[in-house]
Amino acid sequence: MAHIPDGVLSAPVLVGGALATALAVGYATRKLDYERLPQAAVLAAAFFVASLVTVPVGPSSVHLLLNGLMGVLLGWAAVPAVLVALLMQAVFFGYGGLLVLGVNAFNIALPALLCGLLIAPRLNRTQGRNTFIWGAIAGAAGVAVTGLLLCLSLLLSSPDYLPAGQVILFTYLPLLLVEAFVTGATLQFIQRVAPELLNRGHL
């Protein structure tokens, strides 16, 4: 559950999320490195499609987020990439909604930015297994922070969502492991075949 549907969150949370996302997109556009746009498009497309492969966990189902990967590879460009992909998912698949787009984008883009800020610089200096490990950390951090932000958005809307938050955190545990592995393996692969992609990753 990474896409909160319309009609769940309260108005202040919706407005807050929309404002935060607008600010982040504004700043990201100014810092945008046009060289990185094609990569942003490829990763946005991967993010868009990955949400279709869902695995049932308990009463809910989860899918790969890839926001850690987007963060370390794209830096600030991850913000518009996430926003566009989420918009497409809302329009084409009905995931989330247009009113909650700001909150959902914030919940997924902020962890991506954190990965870009904190993990990408370390990742650039690694080789082989260390690349995998730092990549796995980025993947896990992306999922974990998104899960916490999701719970926070639900709880800020209404304390009644506490059980929902607990369910989300529970379903995110297996996702965290898979996401860590996928992100680590992808980054190790990129490091081997096209290391220059990683070196541009820092902010």
Partner: peptide, 25 residues
């Protein structure tokens, strides 16, 4: 080569998931 592989993977994923379940109640 990296780009080609990624494109292939993306396309494959798209085809596999064409009928996959979505994520919406």
């Amino acid at each position: 080569r990296w780009r080609q592989r990624l494109t292939t993977a993306l396309l494959g994923l798209a085809l596999i998931t064409a009928n996959a379940q979505a994520h919406l109640l």
